[in-house]
Simulated scan of single mutants.
Amino acid sequence: MRIGELSERTGASRRLLRYYEEQGLIAAERCANGYRAYSEPIVDRVLQIRGLLDAGLPTRIIKQILPCLNTPRAIHFEHATPEMIATLEQELAGMSARIDCLTRNRDAIAEYLATVRVDH
């Protein structure tokens, strides 16, 4: 498939897909006319990348764990190094802190809205 179709199917802009390719996160073959051609599994790969980015992982970490992604939306390590485990533990702690902060903010807004709605 060409970059436009991949963009439509994943919700990632063409520019973002080119960035993923520059970062070595995805790869495209080149047609005789120079156009990029992506295989079907790249759709799931882009969705995985977007999910990991949304979770707060930087592309340098994503690039390290992508080889361990053997099924769509799942992560499996056969030989995780101590460094990789430590890095992922750090990322997990950071995500948990962000979730806690978001939860507090959500609860505060919900409480405020409940109070405002009663007054109106």
Rank of each mutant, 00 (worst) to 15 (best):
L53A: 12
N70W: 04
Q23C: 14
I109Q: 07
T10N: 05
G4A: 09
L69I: 15
R73E: 01
H76D: 09
M1V: 12
Q23V: 06
E83A: 13
Q90V: 00
R45I: 00
A108P: 02
A97E: 13
T59H: 08
N105Y: 06
L92S: 11
R45Q: 11
R36N: 05
S13H: 03
Y112T: 14
P41N: 09
M95L: 13
A80G: 13
T87K: 06
E40T: 15
A80Y: 03
H79N: 14
I3L: 07
G11N: 08
A114V: 02
Q48E: 03
Y20L: 10
Q23W: 00
P72E: 08
R117I: 05
C101F: 07
I85G: 02
T59E: 01
C101W: 09
I99V: 15
R73K: 12
S7I: 09
A12I: 11
D107A: 06
S96L: 14
E111I: 02
D100A: 15
C101Y: 05
V116E: 09
A93V: 03
L102R: 13
I62N: 00
L52Q: 01
Y19H: 15
I49R: 03
I61T: 15
P72K: 11
R9N: 08
R50A: 05
V118F: 08
M84S: 07
I65L: 15
T87A: 13
H76Q: 12
R98F: 02
T81S: 15
V46S: 00
E91N: 05
R15T: 14
T71R: 15
I49F: 06
S96H: 13
I61M: 05
I109V: 14
R117K: 15
R2Y: 14
F77G: 04
I42H: 00
Q64W: 02
L6P: 01
G24H: 04
I61P: 00
R18A: 07
L92E: 07
M95F: 08
A32I: 09
S13D: 07
S39Y: 05
R36A: 10
G4W: 05
N33C: 07
R45V: 05
S13Y: 04
T10P: 08
L69N: 00
V43I: 15
P58W: 01
A55R: 09
T81K: 03
E78Q: 13
A97G: 10
R15L: 10
Y112Q: 12
A32H: 11
R104H: 08
R9K: 14
P67N: 08
V46D: 02
